[in-house]
């Protein structure tokens, strides 16, 4: 059984189809990179995995629980799937440590002490323990994104979703975030990562999915993706992003 399983997922905004018959899966412990030109539906695809984006056709299961099913306790399922966003989305009105504690307290019903301990341990791990009492706006983009990763990990997720985690960062901060993600991957975390960072894909990914116009055009191992001839669209995309 795969950790994440998608079968013929289609989604429309009105008449406009954003996802067409997307089928793929992510095994436990696997790192899958999703890439493709902007507007190809990759961000939408990853948001369907935890039900942030509803879809009209197909089936998605996470840990064998159907995301789209009426009877599914969606908040509970989401609490088990960490998610990191392009714009960090830390809560600006509370401190860093409170950001990490909030869902532990309210969703997992951990007590104050335990959630703080877990939060501090994770902040330490991403190298930001000394920033715990600051507010998000006082941190750099790279630091905020590392906090966002810690916030997701605090829930002890069974999988992590990353939606362009480095796209909003200044170049010099990209690596500090990718390093945390790489470490996470080596520890065996199941990860689905929408990114243009092909270096990260080469080093860390097990599989690469290439999307174009709402379709999954390529879905293969990393080696196949980078070393053999891909379809015309994937080739064109790769040549565009690898040359700069």
């Amino acid at each position: 059984m795969s950790m994440i399983e998608m079968k013929n997922v289609s989604k429309w905004y009105g008449d406009f189809q954003v996802l067409s018959e997307c089928t793929t899966s992510v095994e436990k412990g696997e790192v899958v990179v999703v890439c493709g030109p902007s507007g190809s539906g990759k961000s939408t695809l990853i948001k369907t995995v935890n039900g942030l984006e509803p879809f009209q056709k197909g089936i998605i299961t996470v840990d064998d629980i159907s995301v789209g099913a009426e009877e599914t306790d969606l908040p509970k399922l989401r609490s088990q799937i960490g998610m990191v966003f392009q714009n960090f989305e830390l809560f600006p009105h509370i401190s860093i440590i409170e950001n990490i504690k909030l869902a532990q307290l309210k969703v997992l019903n951990r007590d104050d002490e335990e959630s703080k301990k877990r939060g501090m341990a994770l902040l330490d791990r991403v190298g930001l323990a000394d920033q715990a009492t600051k507010f998000p706006a006082e941190l750099s983009g790279g630091q905020q994104q590392r906090v966002a990763i810690a916030r997701g990990l605090a829930m002890d997720p069974i999988a992590m979703l990353f939606d362009e985690p480095t796209s909003a960062l200044d170049p010099e901060m990209i690596n500090e975030v990718l390093d945390v993600m790489t470490e996470l991957a080596h520890e065996g975390m199941t990860m689905m990562v929408v990114t243009h960072e092909m270096g990260f894909a080469r080093r860390v990914a097990n599989r690469v999915i290439f999307m174009d116009q709402g379709r999954i055009e390529e879905d293969c191992t990393k080696d196949e993706f980078f070393e053999t001839d891909r379809g015309e669209r994937a080739q064109e995309f790769l040549s565009k992003i690898l040359t700069h």
């Binding site: 989401r78 960490g82 998610m83």
Partner: peptide, 14 residues
């Protein structure tokens, strides 16, 4: 921002 709502939802908040 919608992203804030998403972030709360993604953490499992009702």
């Amino acid at each position: 921002r919608t992203g804030q709502v998403y972030a709360g939802q993604a953490l499992g908040l009702t």
